[in-house]
Computed example of a mutant assay.
Amino acid sequence: MIKLVAIDIDGTLVNEEKIMSEKVKATLQKAMKQGTKIVLCTGRPITGILPYVEELGMEKEEDFVISQNGAVITRTDTREIIEEWPMELAGIKEWYKLSKKFKPLFLVMNEEDFNLIVEPEEDVELEPALIAEGKIISMAVDVKTFEQLNSRYVKAVFFGEPNDLDELEAGIPEAMRENYSVVRSQVYLLEIAAKGIDKGTALKQLAQDLGFEREEVMAIGDGNNDYEMIEAAGLGVVMANGTERLKSIADELTLSNIEDGVAHAIEKFVLN
């Protein structure tokens, strides 16, 4: 019996307009009413998750979300961070140095800040596409030099054109790739986290904390950053719009995000 369902947001829970359909909403609320724990598990920061948490009514005791591609687990009723796996500042500096060799923009993020890193005295005008990305996750982009960083950051982000990110991804030294979690979460985003930190790591930790066995956990996703989450679950469900890499490890396939695929999967494997 499935007792916990981890669900990605973009490309999975919501449609291309970032809207959760009434059918998906009603189906998830029905599952929660019967006692199934729903956990949103996404690359977004908490600010970009809360609108869906509030819409679904997921603010009860022991409701949780997994954010930042698995680097943070938060209890939704109190907003208490119960697990966090930040990057070392030295590691961020290593990726910052690499970024100077390529075109994509380099940013760092935690649950409060989304910072574009620039050279001292560099005059930067934020790209409309980057501003739009900030709006999606309800977080304004700030501009800082590396020397101005004075907080804990859970991930670094490269933002740019797909071809430029292809070049960057191909140019990552093997030693750096082995020492960090590196994932192409979107065609325009390459994300870096501490080694071994991903959605699967966080899902296994949360399931363990809540006393659920792997066979009682289901995960639904569409992107390459959902790979470890799908592997970690006893039942891994991939959207019809998912990547071929993700589909290759799916236990089951469901409909696309514009066909209420999440609702279809919940009805098939949880409500029935």
Rank of each mutant, 00 (worst) to 15 (best):
I2V: 15
I2Q: 07
K3L: 12
D8F: 00
T12P: 06
L13S: 02
V14S: 00
V14F: 00
E16H: 14
E17Y: 03
I19D: 06
I19L: 10
S21C: 07
E22P: 01
K23C: 04
V24S: 03
V24Y: 01
A26W: 04
M32D: 03
Q34A: 06
G35H: 03
T36E: 04
K37L: 14
I38R: 03
V39E: 08
T42V: 07
G43H: 06
T47M: 09
G48S: 07
G48N: 03
L50Q: 11
L50G: 01
P51G: 12
V53M: 09
E54R: 13
M58Q: 11
E59Q: 14
K60M: 10
E62M: 11
F64G: 09
V65L: 13
V65K: 11
I66M: 11
N69H: 12
A71N: 09
A71Y: 01
I73R: 02
I81E: 15
I82Q: 12
E83Y: 14
E84L: 05
A90K: 11
G91F: 08
W95L: 10
Y96V: 08
K97E: 15
L98R: 12
K101H: 12
F102C: 13
F102I: 14
L105V: 10
N110P: 04
E111W: 02
E112W: 09
E112D: 14
N115Q: 12
V118F: 03
E119F: 11
P120L: 13
E121I: 05
E125R: 03
E127T: 12
P128K: 02
I136W: 03
I137K: 05
S138R: 15
S138Y: 15
S138F: 14
K144N: 07
F146M: 15
E147Q: 14
S151K: 14
K155R: 14
A156R: 02
A156F: 01
F158H: 09
F159Y: 15
F159W: 13
G160Y: 04
P162L: 14
D164V: 09
L168E: 08
A170G: 12
I172A: 13
I172L: 15
A175W: 09
M176S: 10
M176G: 05
R177D: 08
R177Y: 13
V183F: 00
R184T: 07
S185I: 08
Q186K: 14
L189C: 14
L190I: 09
I192H: 05
A194T: 07
T201Q: 12
L203T: 05
K204H: 04
Q205A: 15
L206C: 10
A207F: 09
L210A: 03
G211A: 13
F212E: 04
E213M: 12
E215L: 10
E215M: 10
M218V: 04
A219K: 00
A219N: 03
G223H: 06
N225I: 07
D226V: 03
E228R: 04
A232P: 02
A233C: 08
A233F: 02
A233I: 07
A233E: 08
G236V: 07
V237S: 00
V238Q: 10
N241L: 10
G242P: 01
T243F: 10
L246E: 02
K247N: 05
S248F: 10
S248N: 11
T254E: 01
G261I: 00
V262L: 13
V262C: 06
A263L: 09
H264M: 13
I266D: 01
F269K: 06
F269N: 04
F269R: 01
L271Q: 02
N272M: 07
N272I: 05
